[in-house]
C-alpha cells in the first residue's frame, strides 16, 4: 500500500522534483482508475469472506459470485417475461378476432399485459413515482422557500414547523397518507393507482424540507448590494423575484433540490414496501416475504440497482446544476 501514502501529487503539480511525463501519466491513471478498482476489489473480497460466514434462515448470505449469477438469472427471467408478454398480445388478437366473428357488434379492445411487472417495469415505476413526488415537492417547496426567504418574519413563523417536520420518517407519514388518500381519493377506476399516489405523496412530504430550507437561505442571503440595485431601479416584486432572487438563490436552491432528490429516492423504497407500489421497494419486500433460497441474492441485486440509480439521479442533478448555474467556478461534487 506504499503507493497510497507516498504519491499524491497536487493538481497544480508543484512537487519539488519535476516528474517525468510517463510517471505523471501513471500517477493519473492510478488515481483515476487504479485506486477505485483497488477499492472495489477490496470490497468484493471483504464481502465474499463476510458473506460466507453469515448463515441466515434462507441459507448463506449471497457473495459477489451468487449475486453475479443472480443478475444473469434475472436477465434470463426478464427475457422470458418479455416473450410471454408478446405472446399475450398475440393471443389477445386471436381472442378478439374470434369474438368479432361471433359477435360483430363487439368493438375489440387491447388490454394491457396482465402478467407480473418485470424488473425493468419496476425500475420504471420507481423512477416515475420518485420523479413525480420530487417534482410536486419542488413545485411547492421553491415558491414557499422564496416567500420565506424574502420575509424574515414569515421565516420565523414557519421555522418551528419546518424543524418539526423535517426529521419525520416516511414510515410515520405513510399510514396517515394512506388513510387520507383512501378517504379523499375514492374513484373506483382512478387514473393513478392508490399505491402510486400514496408513495408519491409520502415521497413529496419528505422531499419538501431540504428544498424549502435551502431556497429560503439562498434567498435570504442575496447580497445587500443586489437588493439595493433592485431598489434603485424600482423593480416590481415579480421582476425582482424573476431577475434577481431566482438566479441569485439558484445555487443554494439546487443544493436543496439535490438533497431532496436523494432523500426522495431513499424514502421511495420504504414507501413502496408499505404502500405496495409495484416498484423496486415492493420487489425487495416481496422477495423478503417469499423467503426462497434465491430471495437474498435477488434482494442484493435490487440493492445494487437501487444504489446505482440513486447515484445516477444525483449525477443528473449535478449535471443540471452545472448547466443552469451561472457560477461556473463553484466547485460542485
Amino acid at each position: 500500500m506504499k503507493t497510497l501514502s507516498l504519491k499524491w501529487p497536487s493538481p497544480s503539480g508543484s512537487s519539488a522534483s519535476k516528474p517525468s511525463p510517463v510517471s505523471t501519466l501513471i500517477n493519473r491513471l492510478m488515481r483515476g482508475l487504479g485506486l477505485p478498482v483497488l477499492g472495489i476489489g477490496a470490497f468484493l473480497l471483504i464481502w465474499s469472506v463476510a458473506a460466507s460466514h453469515i448463515n441466515t434462515a434462507l441459507g448463506k448470505f449471497p457473495g459477489p459470485v451468487a449475486v453475479g449469477q443472480q443478475i444473469v438469472n434475472m436477465y434470463e427471467q426478464y427475457q422470458h417475461a418479455e416473450a410471454k408478454r408478446a405472446r399475450f398480445y398475440q393471443r389477445q388478437e386471436k381472442i378478439n378476432a374470434q369474438r368479432v366473428a361471433q359477435d360483430p357488434s363487439y368493438k375489440p379492445r387491447i388490454f394491457p399485459y396482465t402478467g407480473p411487472p418485470t424488473f425493468i417495469d419496476r425500475i420504471k415505476t420507481s423512477l416515475i413515482t420518485v420523479l413525480s413526488g420530487f417534482l410536486l415537492a419542488s413545485l411547492i417547496a421553491i415558491p414557499v422557500g422564496i416567500v420565506l426567504g424574502l420575509s424574515a418574519s414569515m421565516y420565523a413563523m414557519a421555522n418551528p414547523i419546518i424543524q418539526l417536520f423535517k426529521p419525520v420518517s416516511p414510515l410515520a407519514w405513510l399510514p396517515l397518507v394512506t388513510l387520507v388518500i383512501a378517504a379523499v381519493y375514492t374513484h373506483v377506476n382512478p387514473l393513478f393507482p392508490k399505491a402510486y399516489v400514496v408513495s408519491m405523496i409520502t415521497v413529496m412530504l419528505c422531499a419538501l424540507w431540504p428544498t424549502i430550507v435551502n431556497t429560503a437561505i439562498g434567498v435570504a442571503s442575496i447580497p445587500q448590494d443586489l437588493r439595493n440595485v433592485s431598489k434603485v431601479l424600482r423593480l416590481g416584486w415579480f421582476t425582482y423575484v424573476r431577475k434577481i432572487v431566482l438566479p441569485s438563490s439558484l445555487p443554494m436552491m439546487f443544493a436543496g433540490l439535490r438533497l431532496s432528490l436523494s432523500i426522495s429516492w431513499m424514502v421511495l423504497i420504504a414507501a413502496e414496501m408499505l404502500a405496495q407500489n409495484p416498484g423496486l421497494g415492493m420487489f425487495v419486500w416481496d422477495e423478503f416475504q417469499n423467503g426462497s433460497s434465491q430471495s437474498l441474492s435477488r434482494i442484493m441485486v435490487a440493492v445494487i440497482v437501487i444504489g446505482l440509480i440513486g447515484y445516477l439521479l444525483d449525477r443528473t442533478m449535478l449535471l443540471l446544476q452545472r448547466l443552469i448555474s451561472w457560477d461556473k467556478k463553484a466547485v460542485l461534487r
Binding site: P223, D225, L226, N228, V229, K243, I244, P247, W326, D327
Partner: peptide
C-alpha cells in the same frame, strides 16, 4: 456601488 454590484449571471 463600491464593489460594482453587477448581477453575476
Amino acid at each position: 456601488f463600491q464593489n460594482h454590484s453587477l448581477l453575476p449571471w
